[in-house]
Design a protein around this nucleic acid. Structure first.
Length: 802
RNA sequence: GCGGACAUGGCGGAAUUGGCAGACGCGCUAGAUUUAGGAUCUAGUGGCAACCCCGUGCAGGUUCAAGUCCUGUUGUCCGCACCA
């Protein structure tokens, strides 16, 4: 027997698979399809770390199994390659981001290939490839055409050091992630996408897909649907203040109003407001607060009353004061609220601080001590025609009343905001629009796509907060496609989330020149059958891509309303010290080192055996050694190999059980227990010092998805026909998964006192009889009064005595 | 503050509908082999000296029977965070 040498055999089989194109998805659409998807990586300069292969191996296992089950499998890979880290690195080292990207992709690719994933490399895509981003731009133009892309003033994070706009995730503790510089809010004209228009469907359609519960919950919370009413409040001036409330039932308890510092009423009525200076001062102060201050130091409420104007509560015509406070956000609802301090915690705090009246309108709590916000138990009081009703009934009644009087209506609101789609950076997809003095924003003609990123010497950010593209005058200045007059290009680029919002569609037809993908291929492959990815993308990429897909569905490009049928998520792999892996903590484990020392099969296996797939887990050097030990034992099975085309009698049950366990566990993310089952089986082979050909074949097939190289090699050494990767997945016979004899426990008063072995088919009565006959049991219950006997066939008998 | 998840040996983790807690692996102990170390093989390994007994974060409860169900409570992690 040769020694197990992973270095040699892994390279050998990877070359064979590649040469024979064995993992490329077929165009044969008569076979059932299976589309497995992992989140395509961002090719960073750091290369892969051991966290990456965890989800990849999981879906590689499922893909390999599906192929052996006769499916046409699409398991693609690509690069999400636009983005800031590459651009920053490029600026710092004076290299073009394109070259940086190429280098990083190459590194990632060789790392991934060394792990033996069964990706279809012929469909590799790259978001920075003009042939790819042509279609990203095309989708943007469609969104623009349908009025779902619009330009609006919005605040961005601006790093004063790097002179660059930052994404929210690039602002850490109020400073720039890269340089530690101060980050301020800068109001800029931004392209926005109307994701809010899809809010309702993004929630409702979650019912039609198989996503793990925590993903659904997080998306629903993020979208934040709430039901309530809009109510008009007259003022003592000619101005109607519209508010949104989820508690219209408490209208009689509204003792004052609060508007956001940015509310337009302040400017509209500036001539009537007596303390305008004070208000403007407050507005200024609020604006200068960074996001950090607003969240961390938000304990104490602040505010200023508007002097000279009062609002009128529509239910009782009482005049109530209007305040300005930054606890009311312009970006939610109408930017104004009716304050009901008796039944809203924030209003209560504000009222206490400024000595405003608190009226109880829902009985049940003690509003002297705190706001009473319970909506289940309370009864309406001090509310005229609502008195005595439950909160739920009162809501209905008051909404009907408001609608009848024409001063309010039922309204649904969402926390979800429209998607800020502009980035003032170079390394992203150019937005394919030009601005013409005469025609406004005009899309460039589709046949001129892609609009290429200009090749330039310098792409450094500017002092002004403009995109670096703004400096390239020969690129910016163009003609209007509509009127032929002078026009300028949009200089902002798209965010990194753009390319990843539709990449799974390109995989089904990656070289198509005429469409983002052909109708036939989309119809055959979509939706994705199984998508695994990180929880950190739940409210970003996953939501964005569902939005784009629904849009594409609406305009007839794709044929399903949802892109992904099933979504699962993996846990993080931590350092040996139980902390997050990071360079600064010095606990990073490089997969290359592991492949070098133990082999790819061992690494893959350990990634799956390490623990509960969905939970975070610390890396363990000893743990991976154990997996290598197992593969060494697998290798040495050759020594025990004997003839036999049927499972031997004494192993038959174990074989069928293991097939069942492995088959089922691979489907339900329980890779760790599937591997444990195979370890148990090999322990049996070893204790019998024998494995026959039929058993060995099945064992190799079961192990193949986890450890594809060693199993192929052993298959070949054993002289089995063909190659392993296209064998048929074994089946189990349910009737053969149970032993003839089964050991059951006999309990007396719930405590195990004896174990007996009985035929496994025995029924309840038979089981009971067998137990009662047992000599030890008879001795133990001798002279006692039997109250009850509970027999569970195949499990236990419990005798209750006194 | 709101929402979600989790809690089992020295460690990672197993345990259909409530039915023998601790599968499998690591680590550890002893033995075999080896000049030695490593590797490998064999046996053992929740606690207790020990049969009894005690053991699934803590306190109650339901049940013949609870890691699993119910009530309360503590801790850890994640997401959101003045969303009216």
């Amino acid at each position: 027997m040769r020694e197990y040498n992973p270095k040699e055999i892994e390279k050998k089989w990877q070359d064979i698979w590649e040469k024979n194109h064995v993992f490329e998805a077929s165009n044969d659409k008569s076979k059932p399809k299976f589309y497995a998807l992992i989140e395509f990586p961002y090719p960073s300069g750091q290369g892969l770390h051991v966290g990456h292969p965890r989800p990849y191996t999981a879906l590689d296992i499922v893909s390999r199994k599906r192929r052996m089950q006769g499916y046409n499998v699409l398991f693609p890979i690509g690069w999400d390659a636009f983005g800031l880290p590459t651009e920053n690195y490029a600026i710092k080292n004076k290299v073009h981001p394109k070259l940086v990207t190429e280098k990083n992709v190459e590194r990632f690719k060789s790392q991934l290939k060394s792990l033996g994933f069964s990706f279809d490399w012929s469909r590799e895509i790259n978001t920075t490839d003009p042939e790819y981003y042509k279609w990203t731009q095309w989708i943007f133009l469609k969104l623009f055409e349908k009025g779902l892309a619009y330009k609006k003033e919005a605040a961005i994070n601006w790093c004063t050091e790097c002179k660059v706009g930052l994404a929210n995730e690039e602002v850490v503790n109020g400073v720039c992630e890269r340089c530690g510089g101060e980050v301020v809010r800068k109001v800029k004209n931004q392209w926005m996408l109307k994701i809010t228009e899809y809010a309702e469907r993004l929630i409702n359609d979650l019912e039609t897909v198989d996503f793990i519960e925590r993903v659904k919950v997080q998306q629903i919370n993020w979208i934040g649907r709430s039901e309530g009413a809009e109510v008009d409040f007259r003022t003592t001036e000619d101005y109607v203040l519209k508010v949104y409330t989820t508690r219209p039932d408490t209208l009689f308890g509204a003792t004052y109003m609060v508007i956001s510092p940015e509310h337009p009423m302040i400017d509209t009525l500036k001539d009537k407001i007596e303390n305008m200076d004070e208000l403007l001062n407050y507005r200024d102060l609020a604006a200068r607060k960074s996001d950090f201050e607003r969240t961390e130091l938000s304990k104490e409420k602040t505010g200023v009353q508007i002097k000279g104007i009062m609002a009128v509560n529509p239910v009782n015509n009482k005049e109530i004061p209007i305040w300005v406070s930054d606890y009311v956000l312009m970006s939610y609802g109408t930017g104004a609220i009716m304050a009901v301090p008796g039944h809203d915690t924030r209003d209560w705090e504000f009222a206490k601080k400024f000595g405003l009246p608190i009226i109880e309108v829902v009985a049940g709590g003690d509003i002297e001590k705190e706001a009473f916000t319970d909506i289940e138990t309370g009864r309406m009081v001090n509310s005229d025609f609502l008195n005595g009703l439950e909160v739920k009934e009162a809501k209905e009644k008051i909404i009907a009343w408001l609608e009848e009087k024409g001063i309010g209506k039922r309204k649904v609101n969402y926390k979800l905001r429209d998607w800020v789609f502009s980035r003032q950076r170079y390394w992203g997809e150019p937005i394919p629009l030009v601005y013409c003095e005469k025609c406004g924003w005009v899309p460039i003609p589709e046949d001129e796509l892609p609009l290429l990123l200009p090749e330039v010497e310098s792409y450094e950010p500017t002092d002004t907060g403009e995109s670096p593209l703004a400096n390239i005058t020969e690129w910016v200045n163009t003609t209007c496609p509509k009127c032929g007059g002078k026009a300028t290009r949009e200089t902002d680029t798209m965010p990194q989330w753009a390319g990843s919002s539709w990449y799974f569609l390109r995989y089904v037809d990656p070289h198509n020149k005429n469409a983002l993908a052909s109708k036939e291929n989309l119809e055959y492959w979509m939706p994705v059958d199984w998508y695994n990815g990180g929880m950190e993308h739940t409210t970003l990429h996953l939501l964005y891509s569902r939005f784009w897909h629904k849009f594409l569905y609406d305009i007839g490009v794709v044929t399903t309303p949802e892109p992904y049928m099933k979504r699962t998520s993996h846990g993080m792999i931590l350092g040996e010290n139980n902390e997050k892996m990071s360079k600064s903590r010095g606990n990073v484990v490089n997969p290359d080192d592991m492949v070098n020392e133990f082999g790819a099969d061992t690494l893959r296996m350990y990634e799956m055996f390490i623990g509960d797939f969905e939970k975070a887990v610390p890396w363990s050097y000893n743990g991976i050694k154990g997996c290598r030990r197992f593969l060494d034992r697998v290798w040495r099975l050759q020594n025990f190999l004997v003839d036999g085309e049927e499972y031997s009698k004494d192993l038959e049950t174990s074989m069928h059980r293991t097939i069942k366990k492995v088959s089922e566990d691979f489907e339900s993310l329980k890779f760790n227990t599937a591997i444990a089952a195979m370890m148990s089986l090999i322990n049996e082979f070893y204790s019998k010092e024998r494995v026959n050909k039929a058993e060995f074949r099945t064992f190799l097939i079961l192990l193949n998805p986890v450890a594809p190289h060693i199993t192929e090699e052993l298959w070949e050494i054993a002289g089995f026909p063909g190659m392993l990767h296209n064998q048929k997945w074994p089946e189990w016979d349910e009737s053969k998964t149970v032993e003839d004899q089964v050991e059951i426990a006999i309990q007396i008063n719930g405590k195990v006192r004896e174990r007996i072995t009985i035929p496994s088919g025995l029924d309840r009565q038979g089981t009971e009889n067998a137990a009662m006959k047992d000599p030890k049991v008879t001795a133990l219950i001798e002279g006692k009064n039997i109250v009850k006997v509970i027999a569970v066939p195949g499990k236990l008998v419990n005798i209750v005595v006194k």
